[in-house]
Simulated assay, not measured.
Amino acid sequence: MTTLLVFEFPSTGPFGAEAEAAYTELATDIAGQDGLIWKVWTEDSQRDVAGGVYLFADEASAQAYVKKHTARLAGFGITDITATSYAVNEGLSRIDHAMLER
C-alpha cells in the first residue's frame, strides 16, 4: 500500500529560487530513493520551516527514507524533525485525481 510521508524541520533558508540552486544535487539524490514515487518540496519563510511531502510505494520504503534523511539532516545540525507517515486509501484518492504511480 502506498504511504504518504510528511517531513518538517526548522530552517532559516535558503528559500525559493535560492533553495532550488542550493539543493539541486540533493533533489537529484532523493529522486533515486528506492520506492519514491514523488516528492513535493515545502517551505515557509514566515515560520522558518522547510520539508516535504513524499509518496512512497510502501511503508518499508518510507521508513528507510526517514532513517536516511533524519541522519542526513542531523549531519547539517538539524534535529528538531517531524516525520509522519500515513497509509493512502488508493481507491478514494484515485477518484480525486491522485497520481499514485510514476
Results as ranks from 00 to 15, higher is better:
42 T>M: 09
21 A>T: 01
81 I>K: 01
90 E>H: 03
63 Q>A: 13
23 Y>L: 10
16 G>L: 01
86 Y>E: 14
48 D>G: 07
73 L>S: 11
75 G>N: 06
14 P>C: 03
62 A>R: 02
60 A>D: 15
61 S>Q: 10
49 V>T: 14
31 A>Y: 11
73 L>C: 12
15 F>M: 06
41 W>G: 08
90 E>G: 02
55 L>D: 04
44 D>A: 04
61 S>N: 13
66 V>W: 01
36 L>C: 01
26 L>Y: 11
50 A>R: 03
14 P>H: 07
15 F>D: 00
63 Q>L: 15
61 S>C: 12
77 G>D: 12
36 L>A: 03
34 D>N: 06
30 I>D: 14
68 K>Y: 14
19 A>R: 00
73 L>A: 12
20 E>R: 08
22 A>L: 08
52 G>P: 02
85 S>A: 09
78 I>Y: 10
90 E>Y: 00
23 Y>T: 11
35 G>T: 10
86 Y>H: 15
29 D>V: 08
65 Y>E: 15
76 F>C: 09
28 T>Y: 02
42 T>L: 01
52 G>N: 11
88 V>A: 13
16 G>W: 04
81 I>D: 09
40 V>S: 13
81 I>Q: 06
87 A>T: 14
40 V>H: 02
71 A>Q: 09
35 G>Q: 12
91 G>W: 08
52 G>A: 10
86 Y>G: 13
48 D>Y: 00
80 D>Y: 03
32 G>N: 08
86 Y>L: 10
26 L>R: 12
80 D>C: 02
19 A>P: 05
59 E>S: 10
77 G>K: 00
53 V>E: 07
30 I>T: 13
43 E>D: 13
40 V>E: 13
44 D>Q: 02
50 A>Q: 00
45 S>A: 09
92 L>N: 00
43 E>R: 03
63 Q>K: 15
25 E>Y: 07
82 T>L: 04
22 A>P: 10
58 D>H: 14
43 E>P: 01
31 A>C: 12
82 T>A: 12
27 A>S: 15
24 T>P: 07
17 A>K: 01
48 D>S: 03
64 A>I: 02
54 Y>C: 01
21 A>W: 03
74 A>H: 10
17 A>M: 02
69 H>L: 04
36 L>V: 01
52 G>K: 05
16 G>E: 05
34 D>A: 11
50 A>V: 07
69 H>K: 08
64 A>L: 03
54 Y>S: 04
33 Q>G: 14
92 L>Y: 00
35 G>W: 03
43 E>I: 06
73 L>D: 12
75 G>D: 12
83 A>R: 05
92 L>R: 00
42 T>Y: 01
45 S>I: 05
15 F>E: 06
25 E>G: 11
20 E>F: 06
18 E>R: 05
22 A>S: 15
84 T>R: 07
76 F>V: 01
53 V>R: 07
50 A>Y: 06
84 T>N: 00
84 T>E: 11
33 Q>V: 15
56 F>S: 08
21 A>D: 09
58 D>R: 07
42 T>N: 00
37 I>T: 12
29 D>F: 00
51 G>C: 03
68 K>D: 15
88 V>G: 12
71 A>C: 06
85 S>I: 04
65 Y>T: 15
52 G>M: 06
92 L>I: 04
73 L>V: 11
80 D>P: 03
54 Y>R: 04
56 F>E: 13
23 Y>N: 13
56 F>M: 11
59 E>L: 07
80 D>H: 08
25 E>A: 14
91 G>I: 05
76 F>L: 13
44 D>L: 02
21 A>H: 06
